[in-house]
């Protein structure tokens, strides 16, 4: 048998053609850069909206909402009236029958509203379980959220935060 002589090939360096891969990678990169939109950091006021009820169960006397304790025990819905002007700004805030804020909503007037609501919700004798906001149809969303913000800070007698908030258009029919 004849012995075959294998000629040793010189060791060649294997090189991958990276240009095609780079093209594809750049295309992917371009897609991601063009479609990239950083989402804004948003928060929510999450609430459970029961159906609105007519104002038949409001039995609060004017001094009961100031913490006097003269309210009826079967009051469940606390009504807040927020009339507005042509600019969409709130002109006053009335809780029950008592005007708590007169004029525009400012940080100090909102604090006043917060204190007032706290005093109402602090009364164990008045078991409010929901708030109904009667807002002017011209009222801006921003103004509405200021009121909602204050309402959601309130705690019910069992310590749970107020989440049952309903909305009614002022002067409208429900």
């Amino acid at each position: 048998m004849s012995r075959r002589r294998h000629k040793k090939k010189p060791a060649e360096e294997v090189q991958l053609n990276l240009a095609a891969m780079l093209d594809m990678a750049f295309q992917l990169l371009a897609f991601f850069i063009l479609t990239f939109r950083p989402t804004p950091i948003e928060g929510h006021f999450q609430m459970h909206l029961p159906l609105a009820v007519p104002m038949t169960n409001v039995e609060m006397s004017p001094d009961s909402s100031t913490g006097g304790g003269g309210g009826s025990a079967f009051v469940e819905t606390l009504d807040i009236m927020v009339p507005g002007d042509d600019n969409g700004q709130a002109t006053s805030v009335t809780v029950g029958r008592q005007a708590v804020v007169l004029g525009r909503l400012t940080p100090s007037s909102l604090q006043q509203l917060d204190r007032h609501l706290r005093s109402i919700f602090g009364l164990q004798a008045i078991p409010f379980d929901r708030i109904q906001i009667h807002a002017d149809k011209r009222l801006h969303y921003e103004e509405l959220l200021k009121i909602v913000d204050i309402c959601m800070k309130q705690k019910m007698p069992d310590g749970k935060p107020m989440r049952q908030i309903s909305f009614v258009e002022m002067g409208g029919t429900e």
Binding site: I41, E42, G43, H44, F45, Q46, M47, H48, L49
Partner: peptide
């Protein structure tokens, strides 16, 4: 029944 009203954070 569950409604969430959106707002921006101050940050």
């Amino acid at each position: 029944r569950q409604i969430a009203l959106s707002a921006m954070n101050r940050i």
